[in-house]
Simulated scan of single mutants.
Amino acid sequence: MKKFAVACFIATLGVLASAQPAAPQPAAPADVPRSIDADRARINEDRARFEAGFLAEDAECYKKFAVNSCLGKVNERRREVMGDLRRQEILLNDEERRIRGAEQVRKTEEKSSPEKQQEAADQRAKAAADYQSRLEREKKKNEDRAAAKAGEQGNSDASAARLKGSQDKSQGKADKQATAAAEAKKLSDRQKEAQERKAQHESERLKQTKPPAKSLPLPN
């Protein structure tokens, strides 16, 4: 799932920049395989697409309140993606130099002994295997970095969810306490009103049952 999120991010950048034309590539020397030439062209096209996508993100950042924070995150992803492309480019350059050197060796070997030719062939095979191994290690590193980054984001989201849940629980408790206090006040007010009515009723009853005043004494 984490790798899928990273792949979606790369695909999104590609879509944003799909309309950008790629810069023309110089022709590779005749002794360099087409695969290297194609890989170099692909790297340059990816660089152009990604940069166009990052420029689009930069433009969106200027529409937000936290411009610097947004730009910082975009630049962080830009450095990571462009750094990966640069590492791939360095590997291609190394392989191109190896191929050119091997071609010179091959031309020299044409006039050499069979033993020398076999030794040179073994060296070329070993160099090719080393190059493939480097590519695999670089690919593994990229996958590990992407997985770690996605994991950090997942942990951050989980912490935010726990914090929100704790806040909601505290708010719910406060709401219950406020409701209980309001109900208690209502009950107290009703009891007070009942006591006042009772006291008034008792006062009125006493007034109605008051004995008549004594008559004045008769004159002698």
Rank of each mutant, 00 (worst) to 15 (best):
R77Y: 06
C70N: 03
D144C: 05
A5V: 03
F4R: 11
D122Y: 09
D168K: 09
K210R: 14
A213V: 14
K141A: 09
A160D: 02
R78G: 01
A28Q: 09
K140R: 10
T209D: 10
V105K: 08
D157Y: 05
Q88I: 07
L16G: 01
K207R: 13
L71G: 01
R106K: 12
F9T: 00
V67W: 03
A30K: 14
L206K: 15
D157N: 10
E89I: 06
E60F: 08
S156N: 10
S18E: 11
Q195R: 07
E96V: 02
E202A: 13
R100P: 01
F9G: 00
T179D: 10
Q153N: 03
A41Q: 03
R49M: 03
A7G: 06
I90E: 11
S166N: 15
E183S: 06
N142D: 03
D144H: 13
A129C: 03
R77W: 02
A102L: 10
K207C: 06
A120T: 06
F50V: 00
R47Y: 05
N93Q: 11
E76H: 10
K198G: 10
M1I: 08
R47F: 00
A38P: 03
S156Q: 12
A120V: 08
Q88A: 09
I99V: 14
A7E: 04
P21A: 12
T179F: 06
E143M: 06
T12S: 05
K198R: 12
A146H: 02
D168Y: 01
R162W: 11
G172W: 03
K141N: 08
I36T: 10
A194C: 02
A199P: 07
K186L: 09
K169V: 02
A11C: 05
V81A: 06
A199G: 12
Q195D: 14
R86K: 15
A125R: 12
A22E: 10
R86E: 15
K185S: 05
R137G: 10
E103M: 06
T108L: 13
Q132A: 13
P212K: 15
G53S: 02
D46S: 12
R124Q: 12
E138D: 11
G14M: 03
R205V: 13
R47S: 05
L85V: 07
K192Y: 01
Q208L: 15
